[in-house]
Design a protein around this nucleic acid. Structure first.
Lengths: 234, 234
DNA sequence: GCTCCGCTTTTGACTATACAAATAGATATA
DNA sequence: TATATCTATTTGTATAGTCAAAAGCGGAGC
């Protein structure tokens, strides 16, 4: 492996593992050059590549810093740049519908590729935008990966945002589907049974362990994703 | 603007405008270095950035070449890496349901931000995977941007693929929604009226002109997008 | 207090050069 | 003919420097 790739992955690992947290300062180029016994150009190439990927931000004179995480922003950004609804002036709140600690069932365990008896926190949450239900969030948090979730009530901070603070920088996989609303979903979203809904499923890992698995169900008549997508490798 | 940015945008422009087409060879580094009167390192930086974005491919000894376009692959890739359906062994065919040349109506013109009397080719097309309807494609091709579409019957090549050959490298915007199947859609897709469907809308531009506008409607029970998404700027 | 000026740190861009790795194509050998 | 070897080309990585641009900081002067 080349030196600059080595530097790149070293720093990426420190960030993804949570060793270096958002806002932390990264050693300046000449320090890293000394550490890796290479020229400043080589360090610069690695840091520029990290900046390109949005993992760090670089500013002259002040140095390079771990950027704010982007994982949940992927979808939030897509949502935000919706062609139809401008974010400005929209009022968002949420309610916790259910919160319980239990163990992962057989079927779900298989779906998540996690052990069947793993302890989890199961959350159900309703998002309301401009007074109308906008999404049901059904979430599983792996308690061995995020033990502090056990004590958190999520009364004042949405689970997604809380996790972002707690476990910044992780990898995620998304699935987007269209599903018909079942009776319960329809009731909660104040829509008709059978109504087309947009479902977004996201599984998030940190260091190879599942952190959370979440499904957002949006009423089809009040929601869409818009944007310029690029699928990435892996 | 810096030299390497200059080289980058020059080449990007040549590719996007269709001046250099997929497979075309790009001058070797030392030639570009001479042309721009800079060092090979600077050229290398620009070409590496283009390779990173997938616009060119580089191979030692043979040189750098304009890559195959990716626009339609964005969604195709997402579709291909579907967790449930492996591509291997799936048989795909398509039928042209309608094909006519007309002028853009008032409502659609506004939607596309194009003049209301622009001449268009309107296509409707059914995609069949493993013998079952998988998508309806409703497409508008702007004839002033792609005049050769007037003579093409699309009997043997799907419109998306044909356009990719004809107008490689363009920018696109996507919208993903969930919609209920209306009577016509349900009949064509062999599903129930009201069934949840996944709708993908894509508008494609080249050099600031709309090339095509297309909506794919997939039955929700037979289709999903999966993958690791990154929204990009612009 | 406030403004302006210059100093210093850090990143950004670039050069000229060097050598390594890959490999297409030619050449030599079995 | 088939295979191995050599050679030239092109990209990939790295070095050790230069100069420039941005921006934080402190001090001089008012």
């Amino acid at each position: 492996m080349s030196i600059y790739q080595h530097i790149f992955t070293d720093i990426e690992t420190k960030i993804i593992s949570g060793d270096w947290r958002p806002g932390d300062r990264i050693p300046v180029e000449h320090e890293l050059a000394a550490e890796y016994r290479c020229s400043r150009m080589t360090v610069s190439k690695a840091l520029s590549a990290l900046a390109e990927r949005g993992m760090i931000v670089r500013r002259r004179k002040t140095g390079s810093f771990v950027a704010s995480p982007q994982i949940d922003r992927t979808v939030m950004d897509i949502q935000d740049i919706s062609t139809e609804a401008e974010l400005a002036g929209h009022e968002h709140r949420f309610e916790i519908l259910a919160r319980k600690i239990e163990r992962l069932g057989e079927a779900e365990a298989q779906q998540l590729s996690e052990p069947a008896d793993a302890e989890i926190l199961r959350l159900q949450c309703l998002h309301i935008v401009d007074g109308r239900p906008n999404a049901i969030e059904r979430r599983i948090i792996m308690l061995d990966a995020v033990p502090r979730a056990r004590e958190e009530s999520f009364a004042s901070i949405p689970p997604g945002k809380w996790l972002l603070d707690e476990v910044p920088w992780s990898k995620a996989k998304h699935v987007i589907r269209a599903v018909s609303a079942d009776t319960t979903t329809a009731r909660i979203l104040q829509t008709e049974r059978g109504e087309a809904c947009l479902s977004l499923i996201r599984q998030t890992w940190q260091n190879g362990r599942t952190v959370t698995y979440v499904e957002f169900t949006h009423p089809g008549d009040r929601f869409q994703f818009a944007g310029t997508f690029h699928p990435t490798a892996n």
